[in-house]
Design a protein around this nucleic acid. Sequence first.
DNA 1: ATGACAGTCTGCGACTGA
Length: 263
Amino acid sequence: MKIASWNVNSVKVRLPHLLAFLEDARPDVLCLQEIKCLADDFPRLEIAALGYQVEAVGQRAYNGVALVSREPARSIVCGLPDSGDDEQARYIEASFGAAGSEVRIASIYLPNGNPVDTDKFTYKLAWMERLVGHAQGLLRREIPFVLAGDYNVCPADEDVYDPVAWQGDALCRIETRSRFRALLNLGLTDAYRLFHREPHRYTFWDYQAGAFQKNDGIRIDHLMLSPQAADRLADAGIDRHVRGWDKPSDHVPVYVDLDIEGR
DNA sequence: ATGACAGTCTGCGACTGA
């Protein structure tokens, strides 16, 4: 089962890229972030023509996450538990795969958190704590699961082109990294890092100042695997070439391949 | 260099993102 994650920065603008990626990569499940539209406005017909269906939670103009899959999603959950009156569309989770070998997959869009001296940072940290709590609950089920998405977290300095310049940024702050590390300490695996140890491999490059051409990037898109999923991990990677397409998203897809039947 | 980003709608400027 191939699972990919991609912050598309508007699914309407990026629809041609999304279709090309689905045709090229043929993931069983694709987790999308920043669809930037209401769920009803997601371009489902074009996706269906390629044999994929969509589950989405969206809002006007900002945020929004989706699960694009070849087989129907089951037991869909929108939003993290205990989110109170949080209206921001940042989490969707569902089950995929054959009965008896099902995989729980979440598409997450973790808050950016800048500037750090505002309630945006407080919101980010609280969101991360809810995610850690939810991961604990999922772990008790002892099933393969994947929390995939735009974490807005650089786990370590080696994930940043200029760690000094980024020191103090919400993506690199110690409070942010410690909450990301809490996921690792629970037993989750950063799938990319299991296969690739070399530093300075990125998933995001700013649109400004020729950042991609200079490889001034950061690694903030991650697939976090439960022990039962990590045991079946066959491959993981970053589809860096997508950043070179015409009018690209500022993020590129990341993916894992699990030794589990996709259907 | 008078510059050098790209989405969204409160729309031709402000807001947000990373």
